[in-house]
Design a protein around this nucleic acid. Structure first.
Lengths: 154, 154
DNA sequence: CTGAAATAATTAGTACTCATAACAAAATGC
DNA sequence: GCATTTTGTTATGAGTACTAATTATTTCAG
């Protein structure tokens, strides 16, 4: 009758993960899900998904960019980027301008409205970023970023 | 005409990420995708997805477990777990036994075949794990795991 | 300069993951 | 005994990501 108490809280915490708990990949997934969920919640007031924000940030950093270039740095497939830009354009946040020498490509830039929204979204993004860094504890972040980069390159 | 050379390799590497490159979340996503892709490739010979392996590992570690408990530790929704177990059971890797005191629940365990396959898959898993740890550099891993746990808890 | 190959964006269709709601059968608890 | 909870299930939808094929344009070889 020693372990009869287990039935009330049915193996709540003491279920073994079979070694998974000391695995980088498993914790990497949990951490990534948590981070994205937190950021998504912070971006809700602006009706932006995480991907939308990253696209806006890249366009702001390098205006006149073509869709292909964005897809490259953010690792988004070209077809998928089309609908993302479609939506941002429909909301008047992004403009598909023309590239001087190439009539196929679009030169992407933020509209005034897009710029304004991005500035507000950035505040939420920074706030979220600080929350993550707090969880890390300052000194770790540099090594953490370097480590993640090495893993991402695998 | 100074930057005419850019047209040949159109902004290949010098596109700014707008601060994203120093962001934990962004690198976390890249790292997680890379890790899962690598592990998935390693598991291909066994026709197992990453989730399948984790389920098998948990069942092996704690046989007699119920589906709900597995979903809890692995953060898989109950409805989604049903089809996963369905498939593993159909392949003869997992057995849905009966729980003594409860006629609703299933006591999950590995079949001999499932145990055999898991042992082989574990080799691939370990191999993949070493590759990840190599990218990390030994001393980092402990802090890395701790850091990821804190982030995952957010 | 003309035809072949390459490129930018797009369209369409597909697959996979993840989440929610509703349900039946069995167990629990007052 | 009857209301409530729990386990597994079904059905279904949202979201993301991937592939193949198409159009318009540009580049390049001869």
């Amino acid at each position: 009758m020693i372990d009869a108490a287990e039935r009330k809280e049915p193996m709540g915490e003491d279920v073994s993960l079979g070694g998974l708990e000391t695995t980088v990949g498993f914790l990497l997934r949990l951490a990534q899900v948590a981070v994205f969920k937190d950021l998504l919640a912070g971006l809700k007031p602006f009706d932006l998904r995480v991907t939308d924000l990253s696209v806006l940030l890249v366009i702001e950093a390098t205006p006149g960019l073509q869709q292909r270039a964005i897809g490259e740095v953010l690792r988004i497939q070209r077809p998928n980027l089309v609908t993302i830009i479609d939506q941002l354009e429909a909301r008047g946040l992004v403009r598909r301008g023309s590239v001087p020498g190439d009539r196929r490509a679009y030169a992407l830039s933020l509209t005034t409205e897009g710029e304004a929204l991005l500035q507000k979204a950035k505040v939420a993004h920074d706030q979220h970023g600080r929350k993550v860094l707090d969880a890390l504890g300052d000194f770790e972040t540099e090594r953490m970023l370097a480590a993640l980069r090495r893993i991402a390159a695998l």
